[in-house]
Amino acid sequence: MNRALPVLTVLAGIIVLWYAAAVWMNATWVYDQAERAGTTVTLAEVIPQTMVQDRPLLPPPHQVGAEVWKGLFGQAVTSKRSLVYHAYITFKGTMMGFGLGIVFGVALAMAIVRFRVVDMSVMPWAVISQTIPIVALAPMIIVVSSQMGLTGRDLPKAIIAAYLSFFPVLVSMVKGLRSPDQMQLDLLKTYGAGEWATFLKLRLPASMPYFFASLKVAVAASLVGTIVGELPTGAIEGLGARMLIGSQFGEPLIMWAALFASAILAGLLIVAVGLVERFARARMGVPA
């Protein structure tokens, strides 16, 4: 309860501001309608009308909530109109990109920590890679991968997601694999431990807290990457495609519902990663 109260307070504040903004933004349409009809409306008449428009500039929270509810539970989850269906497509892409990003990030971190040459040659490029806007890169990745004969959007989407998610893993793992101090390395030396034993017994376990800290960032980045990968060139499935459709067809409710669905998905993913982390920490003897 002590933790929920501040969060709920902020939530209440956001909802109040949101309603105020919805009234303010949607009122323009109501006044225009009245002017065209040659009538006048009072403020008391305007406010209810800002709450129920089909295509509001800013849908009020209850409309978004109703749309999300309808999207989640209004039809079979296999329907093309179901947010569950689209969220699942996005979830699948996110997980593929997440897995790919972890593998790539960890492998690169291992190489960087092991070989000074890789550290000096590759690390700067890894940093530069993150300065390129993914929105510009995503269509290129999709075009190139279809040129290479890769059908379907799963793989290019996963690559875009991995492009964003490998970086936090890489940076954390480099730090984590280098975290053992000289004394711990000397200790293993006195046992005559080789490089591989040092990696398995010391560097890898020592890097785990860093790894799990990076996973939360990486999974969120992977979701963003997947959604961006669903935007360009006529995708019809996934939350990203849903947002684009809503925006192109002037259906703000669809857009907002997809936005909230992705927020919910992000929340669930982060909670799931948190649970995995807690389990791993318990296994590694960290005091609860």
Partner: peptide, 16 residues
């Protein structure tokens, strides 16, 4: 394996 070495800090692995 002629010697065992004890450092100033115990240096036990916290995960073991």
């Amino acid at each position: 394996r002629a010697y065992g070495y004890v450092f100033q800090a115990a240096g036990l692995y916290p995960w073991r």
